[in-house]
Amino acid sequence: MQTNKLSKVFLFGGIFTFLFLYIPLIVLILYSFNDSKINVGWVGFTLKWYKVLFADKEIIHAGVNSLLIAFTSSSISIVLGTLAGVALHRYKIPLLSGLVMVPVATPELLVGVSLLLFFLMINFTLGYTSIILAHTAFSISFVAVAVKSRMFGMDDSIIDAARDLGASPFKAFWLILIPTILPGVIAGGLMAFTLSVDDFVITFFTAGVGATTLPLAIYSMLKMGVTPEVNAASTVIILFTLCLASIATKLSPQIFK
């Protein structure tokens, strides 16, 4: 009986949590189909805000920028973060494994300001390159942590076995280690990609004058009030994130073998 009651508590708690998380998103998505210029009251179904969105050259331009930045920064951080994760697992240097978490835990505002000061100090012109560097800097931690935790449950002797069976150090790394930790690499990489796509604070500080990304563009639209076009843009981002998440979970079990 006791466990029954407890499991009911968990069930309702779970349902409540999901409602709490998703009701605002559902409202936002619904209103992107609302045939009214203001987000108050349901008037009727329309797709016109999506037409407006896709005709808005500035938004599309910002979206493409965001994707390119996310792609570049997550690619770089996949490579560097994987190497860092492997090194952290293998050498077990006590201080470093704590330090790698610092960028994850530091308030974004601090990261943004410190990066801005750093770029100014070395006389680096702010723009897309500085955004990519900034995003790479915080993404590496996420990949490194994901790879390190994946390696934690791994049988270390498979690398020895690969060498023993005739593989050079590079082949042992490429043919044995990488496929084994791939789920961690993919998880970390997707996290890096999504974080880069929706980062506002750090991008805000490191973008400079000319460069713009989707979150920055949406923010500047908000200054003129929340129009259903913003809802439509947000809906597209949500769908995109959902797609990435489901690809990740679809891929993982097969790679896990």
């Binding site: 049988d155 002797s157 498979i158 020895d160 076995a161 690969a162 060498r163 023993d164 069976l165 005739g166 593989a167 050079s168 150090p169 044995i176 496929p179 084994t180 791939l182 790679i255 073998k257």
Partner: peptide
């Protein structure tokens, strides 16, 4: 280096490659 020694080791944990089939493991 280990890869150039004409000998092999059987490890305590077997150290089979988890992402390869039995046949691919043996073919390695």
């Amino acid at each position: 280096p280990p890869e150039r020694r004409p000998l092999h080791t059987i490890f305590q944990s077997y150290a089979l490659f988890p992402h390869m089939t039995v046949a691919d493991n043996i073919a390695f």
